[in-house]
Design a protein around this nucleic acid. Structure first.
Length: 595
DNA sequence: TTAGGGTTAG
């Protein structure tokens, strides 16, 4: 055996002429049939021996083969020695660097191209735009857009789709849309990129509108387009659309591969339908770490911590290793289900047993977990002992815990840290004001309000959406714009009386202003989620769950209010807020009253 | 001879 290996090596060292020595086509054919890098090198040697490196077609193909196999050292050596280069040469070299993630050299090669006076072509530009996209370098992206315009390449779908994608990933969706609207012949990828752009920029309802428009235009979606629209439904939490998209997927016989299946698990979970998410999960033949993590996260949103752990153990038994996100999802599930000891245990096992190092996101989950349980000292100790740089989410978790437990001193500390990081965020001032208000410290409340007006900051209004008969309605706090407004307020008034008889005590501490109790009550009864629930009771039949989505965290009083509503009306109410789902049924909430 | 879009958390 050993002798045979030596003999083969010797053969490779002595290149033999291949095929016809003078015809480029034969070298290209030989390269195309190359199975490994040593064969490419062998053909390279033959090309040199037979003086064919001067042929640009052959040299470019060689360069492409090295770049495709990600052997950038050989590719760059060849590129450096090429006396003649054309646009293909440049494009392959730029693309070679970009595809291995070497953006610095990719961009440097592109600059060299511009300096050498070569006109960049439609093949090179998408690579360069991708660099701008992945580096989130909007300034550079706009410069490349100018180059596209300067060379009249706007008609090219590849360059345009790449630009739309770049704008979307840089979070300037209006620029993406403007360019999309200018395009004459949009192909499927362009549509998909634009649909994804809206979902990316939290404008998922626009994604759905665009998807319908795409179908009307006769563009047939493929699996990637379906994953994109599934993702948009997940972001929107639109259950009715989710069902329609699922129906479309079945009718058009898209197979449930690992990516589409995982996206659908996430979609159903975020639309509040955990059972459908689990059904998809059970039907999937192939599951990867993302699938398992998505299912763990799904149970986490819904407050089913134990089930999240069941999935985690099944995952380990199936031989899949957890990653950073699996643990974020698991810790998140613990903090939203009150599984304190389990959370502490898994946090300590992460590194020891699974070699996953805790980062800021895991620490934030732990602060949330300990903080909600009232173990604020331990939460603070963890914050002070951690070696990872602290961010606003971490302090936000600590502040949230202070609000629940009325710890003013610690809240002030958290807010000071938050204001250092985000001085313009009005939400931090409002949270601290609420904490002061709850303690009756009205002078401090006034101070916070003055500070906000001095700094010209305004709180983001609380908004709630409700889907009734396939139509979405939006409510803001104190809203009277709805055509059935009078009925809604009348319903709230009569409901309030019944709820108070049943034992509900409105918690006016959740009203910020230092005003009369009666006024406070009025303000409390006009919170956006209460208006949406009242509308839901009027507009939907018994047996149909009321599903609402809030753009901020559900306030503590609304949480109690909803529990009472579900008890006296026997209606199931599902509330999705920024952090999780709350399933209210017969006076209880799936978050285990762990508020 | 060279080019594009998709899954989990925060």
């Amino acid at each position: 055996m050993a002798d045979t290996r030596i003999a083969r090596t010797q053969i490779h060292k002595e290149p033999q002429p291949l095929l016809s020595r003078s015809r480029p086509k034969f070298y290209v054919t030989a390269l195309l049939s190359s199975r490994n890098i040593s064969h490419i090198r062998e053909v390279h040697a033959q090309v040199v021996v037979n003086g064919m490196l001067q042929n640009l077609t052959v040299a470019n193909k060689l360069l492409y083969m090295y770049a495709q196999r990600r052997v950038l050292g050989d590719a760059y050596a060849l590129f450096g020695g090429m006396g003649e280069r054309d646009s293909v040469t440049w494009s392959v070299m730029v693309g070679g660097f970009v595809n291995v993630g070497d953006f610095t050299n990719g961009f440097a090669t592109f600059r060299e191209l511009i300096r050498s006076g070569v006109t960049p072509d439609i093949y090179t530009l998408p690579f360069v735009i991708r660099v701008c996209r992945d580096m989130k370098d909007l300034k550079m992206g706009r410069l490349v857009h100018d180059i596209v315009l300067k060379h009249g390449l706007l008609a090219d779908n590849f360059a345009c789709a790449a630009l739309v994608d770049m704008y979307a990933k840089c979070k300037v969706v209006d620029d993406a849309r403007q360019l999309f609207d200018k395009m004459q012949n949009r192909d499927l990828v362009t549509w998909t990129v634009m649909i994804g752009a809206f979902a990316e920029c939290r404008n998922a309802d626009e994604s759905l509108v665009l998807f319908d428009w795409m179908i009307e235009e006769g563009v047939v979606p493929d699996k990637v387009a379906m994953v994109t629209i599934v993702n948009a439904c997940a972001k929107l939490g639109a259950m009715h659309r989710a069902r329609l998209v699922h129906y479309y997927i079945c009718r058009n016989k898209f197979s449930l591969d690992v990516i589409l299946g995982t996206a659908m698990i996430d979609m159903y979970a975020k639309c509040g339908c955990i059972d459908s998410a689990r059904e998809i999960f059970d039907r999937m033949q192939v599951k990867n770490v993302i699938t398992w993590s998505a299912m763990i996260a799904a149970y986490g949103y819904h407050g089913h911590g134990r089930k999240a752990f069941d999935i985690f153990h099944l995952m380990l038994n199936s031989g899949v290793s957890p990653n950073v996100i699996t643990f974020v999802s698991l810790l998140y599930a613990c903090s939203h289900s009150g599984l304190i000891e389990e959370g502490l245990r898994i946090f300590s096992l992460m590194w020891d047993e699974f070699a996953v190092r805790a980062d800021i996101k895991h620490y934030t989950c732990m602060v949330d977990l300990l903080g909600r349980a009232g173990r604020l000292d331990e939460a603070l100790e963890l914050v002070e002992s951690m070696a990872v740089e602290k961010d606003e989410r971490l302090w936000g978790a600590l502040l949230g815990a202070c609000r629940i437990h009325g710890n003013i001193d610690l809240a002030e500390k958290a807010v000071n840290s938050l204001l250092e990081l985000q001085p313009e965020n009005a939400g931090h001032y409002v949270l601290l004001s609420n904490i002061y208000a709850r303690a009756g410290r009205w002078k401090d409340v006034a101070k916070m309000r003055d500070l906000m007006s001095q700094r010209r900051l305004k709180k983001v209004p609380g908004l709630t959406w409700i889907e009734v008969d396939n139509k979405t309605y939006q409510f803001s706090t104190g809203d009277r714009t709805h055509p059935r407004s009078e009925k809604i307020y009348a319903m709230l008034e009569s409901l309030g009386k019944k709820l108070e008889l049943a034992g509900y005590v409105p918690d006016t501490n959740f009203v910020l202003h230092d005003v009369d109790e009666e006024v406070k009550l009025g303000m409390l009864y006009s919170h956006s989620e209460k208006l949406a629930i009242a509308f839901g009771l009027i507009a939907t039949a018994n047996g149909i769950p009321i599903r609402i989505t809030k753009n901020l965290r559900v306030c503590g009083d609304c949480h109690t209010f909803t529990k009472f509503v579900s008890a006296i009306t026997q209606r199931v109410i599902i509330v999705r807020d920024v952090n999780r789902f709350h399933h209210f049924r017969e006076g209880t909430c799936s978050c285990g009253d762990y508020w």
